[in-house]
Simulated scan of single mutants.
Amino acid sequence: MHHHRADGRQSAKTFKLTTLALDPGQGFRVEREHSFRPLTTRRYHPGPHAIQLLVNGVAGERAAFLPLPP
């Protein structure tokens, strides 16, 4: 997850989903929700955020999004 910072840059935060082994050609569906409610440890700033999957240490393409207002 790449969070939008107050100065306009993005900072990366890694969330580990799972560890598993797949056979060749086998698929796996990933579903996860991420809360943007205010926390004492993290402030969310308005602006573009991004998500990026990391599989076997290889980063995929970033997908930018704008969080919905509360």
Rank of each mutant, 00 (worst) to 15 (best):
D7S: 08
G27T: 02
P46S: 11
K13H: 10
R37A: 15
P69S: 07
G25R: 01
R37D: 14
L22P: 00
R37S: 13
G25V: 03
T41F: 12
L53D: 11
G60R: 09
G8N: 08
T41W: 15
A64T: 02
P46Y: 06
F28I: 04
S35Q: 13
E33A: 11
R32E: 15
H3S: 09
H49K: 01
R62I: 01
S11P: 01
P69R: 10
V58W: 06
F15M: 02
L20D: 10
H4E: 08
D7V: 13
T40S: 15
V58Q: 13
P48L: 13
R43I: 11
E31K: 09
R62Q: 09
H49E: 01
R37T: 07
S11F: 04
G57S: 06
H3K: 05
F28T: 02
L39V: 01
R9E: 15
L53H: 04
L20G: 12
R43Q: 11
P70I: 00
L68S: 14
V58F: 05
A50P: 03
R29Y: 05
R43L: 15
R29M: 10
H2C: 03
R37E: 14
P67A: 05
R62V: 03
P46Q: 06
M1G: 07
P69G: 03
Q10K: 02
A50T: 01
A64H: 05
F15H: 08
K16S: 00
P48E: 12
G60V: 03
E33L: 09
R9C: 12
T14C: 02
T19V: 05
Y44F: 15
T41A: 15
R37W: 10
P24M: 08
F65D: 06
L20K: 11
R43H: 09
G8F: 09
E31D: 08
R29D: 14
K16G: 00
S11K: 07
R43E: 12
G47E: 04
A63E: 12
R32T: 09
P38W: 01
M1K: 03
A12E: 11
L39E: 01
P69I: 00
A50F: 09
H45R: 00
R62W: 06
H2M: 07
G8T: 04
V58C: 02
F15L: 06
A6F: 13
H45S: 06
Y44S: 04
G57F: 02
P24F: 06
A63K: 06
H2W: 13
P69N: 08
F65R: 02
F15D: 10
T14D: 15
N56S: 15
K13Q: 10
L39D: 06
G8W: 05
F28C: 10
A6S: 13
A21H: 03
N56H: 10
H49V: 01
R9D: 14
F15K: 04
L68E: 15
L53M: 04
R9W: 10
T41C: 12
D7F: 14
F28Q: 11
S11G: 09
A6L: 15
P46K: 04
T18E: 13
A50W: 07
F65V: 00
Q26L: 01
G60I: 05
A12D: 09
I51R: 09
A59V: 00
V30K: 06
K13F: 10
Q10V: 03
H49T: 00
A12F: 01
P70W: 03
A6Q: 07
M1E: 13
P48R: 05
A59W: 08
A64Q: 04
T40M: 09
R9Q: 14
T18L: 10
A59G: 05
R42C: 08
Q10D: 04
